[in-house]
């Protein structure tokens, strides 16, 4: 019976049933769940196969477009070979000295911070819910308006000091607005607690020290993040680079 239904479904879709048979099929379809499933499966298999087998003109045209754009956007930069005149040679050796100097001076030390400081984002909005003070604070925070976010989160934190999420984002806002000491106190407390923000706090602590190029303290905090925590891989990666 099952196999008949499969064939029957194929015949229905492919127009191989006469009018009376079609009606019978559609009638049965209204209450036969198995038949409904066969019909859905049939369309699914048919369209998948079509995707694989069709000589699709639109797809061919798109491929042409993509190949042209690939050359424009993915071309590997060709190294240019230029013969150096004696003047250029002099200039380039001077430049080389300069580069060496810069290498030693290394003003991009802050780069690691840029690389590893994932700007956290607050996700608090529930669909359809009314906008609360917390929502407003999160918008400010996500827009990186940290001083305004700090004011809003400060109030919320005062009203509910037990709220770990508020404490965490308040702490980050403090650090971002140069109230580093106060922010660290807050994050340290958070780390000592049991909330889900524990290791977020530890990572934020590490970032605050990394920003000041204080490697020992950065390492100290990174090492507090255990395997299994979300930030673990990133912390380990950074530890290797320090």
């Amino acid at each position: 019976m099952t196999e008949d239904k499969i064939l029957w479904t194929a015949q229905y879709v492919e127009g191989d049933l006469n009018e009376a048979e079609c009606l019978e099929f559609e009638n049965l379809l209204t209450h036969d769940e198995e038949l409904k499933q066969y019909l859905a499966d049939y369309y699914d298999i048919h369209s998948s196969l079509q995707m694989e087998l069709a000589n699709d003109d639109g797809r061919n045209k798109l491929l042409d477009t993509l190949q042209a754009l690939n050359q424009e956007h993915f071309a590997a930069e060709q190294p240019k070979v230029v013969k150096l005149s004696s003047y250029l040679r002099w200039v380039s050796s001077a430049a080389a000295v300069l580069v060496l100097g810069i290498l030693i001076w290394a003003p991009w030390k802050g780069d690691l911070y840029e690389q590893f400081n994932t700007e956290p984002r607050m996700n608090v909005t529930e669909r359809g819910a009314e906008q609360t003070d917390l929502d407003k604070a999160s918008v400010l925070f996500n827009d990186k308006k940290y001083s305004e976010a700090k004011a809003a989160l400060g109030k919320l934190n005062a009203a509910d000091p037990q709220n770990a999420m508020v404490a965490y984002y308040y702490g980050v806002s403090l650090i971002e607005t140069n109230e580093v000491a106060k922010g660290r106190l807050l994050l340290e407390d958070l780390f000592k607690g049991e909330s889900v923000y524990r290791y977020d706090a530890a990572y934020a602590m590490a970032m605050s020290y990394l920003k000041e190029d204080q490697k020992t303290d950065t390492k100290f905090w990174l090492e507090k993040i255990p395997d299994g925590a979300v930030q673990y891989e990133k912390a380990q990666e950074l530890l290797k680079k320090l």
């Binding site: 499969i6 064939l7 194929a10 492919e14 499966d41 049939y42 298999i45 048919h46």
Partner: peptide, 17 residues
């Protein structure tokens, strides 16, 4: 064509099933 395609597609569905 319709008849044959239905049969062939049904065989395919059974194979996949």
């Amino acid at each position: 064509l319709r008849k044959k395609k239905s049969e062939c597609m049904a065989s395919l569905v059974k194979l996949i099933d």
